[in-house]
Write a protein that binds this DNA or RNA. Structure first.
Lengths: 210, 210
DNA sequence: TATCAATAATCAATCGTTTGATTAATTTTT
DNA sequence: AAAAATTAATCAAACGATTGATTATTGATA
């Protein structure tokens, strides 16, 4: 193991801890002292590595955005039906959402703020790729007669909204379902399959021509 | 005009300004100095009236919760079909959401935090009434054969999620729709009717037995 | 005059950041 | 290979700024 790998491992570890704390406590709520303490490093290291709190915050986005681009496989080129494309999309985003729920929380909380445009631009850039991919699938499906003519934008809002509601309003959702969905096991074994099943069925019912 | 009325008007004005700033900047982002300045009062008056920043924050919830209970008309007693009840629900919450989008932002941002349980309890109590009302309508509709047997909890997540997505992720939604939905005129004349129409049609398609 | 309302000035606490010094690691020189 | 020089990593301490809150004081009202 080389030195640089150790360094990057330490940086990644700090990013990992920071992502968790930011998602739980918010940007202002997660102090640099707490982050450094939980990560087991000296406070000054945050500035040494990332140039400051904001730099650390941005590093989280850089990392996640980089990962996202790697796994973004365009479904539009595959020779499958529109319904199959849609179902694959639903599967993909349900899996993604459960994998990094901390980052999802940060994203949607950040987006709800009016200011802080340096990161919101990145967020919109990140999410818009996914959104436009879905939009294309829906519009193509309508154009080739597979889907009924629905309000595509609102349907995307439903898709993203349902997902983000389960993650960001997890306490309320837990109350509704009657189980603690912040528990990763519950999320994986119950919420995720129920969400997938629900979305597929509802979209199919809504998009099937009558 | 009596003194107490003047005082209450001033208090309400502070609450109004604070609600706007909290929704735009977050709890920590909206400093007491800024709130006092925008409200046109001295900083010490916030503590004088509300006992502190947290007291002012709670006062927003007290006011909104109080208003909410007044206009909570139970649809379950009316002698209309399950579909009509559901449509009325959709209308109600779409109207409500547009009326106080600032408070909605605060609520969902607050709920996404893991801590600060003093207000989250109130939020859950506030939202659960609406959620349970919808849940009852859906379960009744299924029981009397009006609705297909769907995942009720996930459907509620869809209803709340779609709504909160348009409000909390308004920047992303604006990008999708191609218009600035933070503009009240756009929200009222375009987003609201489209949301209502979308929800009604989708729910009908999904809940109608095949 | 006595109570309430409102202000300016000030408080202690916490924030993110920076500093100077020290140790560890790497490179260069002999 | 050994010693010296240089760079990177880490630390405790302290910085200035800002936060929410409080005080002392003044003005208004009844």
């Amino acid at each position: 193991m080389t030195i640089t790998e150790e360094k990057h491992e330490k940086k990644d570890h700090i990013i990992e801890i920071a992502e968790k704390l930011f998602s739980e406590l918010g940007y202002d709520g997660a102090s640099t002292r707490l982050i450094a303490q939980d990560a087991g490093v000296n406070m000054a290291m945050l500035n040494y590595y990332f140039g400051g709190k904001e730099g650390l915050y941005l590093a989280i986005f850089e990392k996640r955005i980089g990962e996202s681009k790697l796994q973004l496989q365009s479904l539009n080129n595959e020779a499958i039906s529109s319904f199959e494309k849609l179902n694959k999309c639903i599967e993909n985003y349900a899996d993604k959402m459960m994998a990094n729920s901390c980052f999802q929380k940060i994203i949607y909380r950040e987006m709800s703020l009016t200011q802080r445009s340096s990161v919101t631009d990145k967020i919109i850039q990140l999410l818009s790729e996914n959104a436009l991919e879905i939009k294309k699938i829906l519009l193509d499906g309508i154009a080739n007669g597979s889907f009924a003519e629905v309000d595509v934008d609102m349907l995307i809002a439903t898709m993203f909204g349902t997902k983000s509601y389960l993650i960001n309003s997890s306490q309320m959702a837990s109350f509704l379902i009657g189980k603690d969905i912040t528990d990763p096991k519950v999320r994986e074994e119950e919420v995720k399959p129920r969400l997938k099943d629900h979305m597929k069925k509802m979209f199919k019912a809504y998009l099937t021509k009558s």
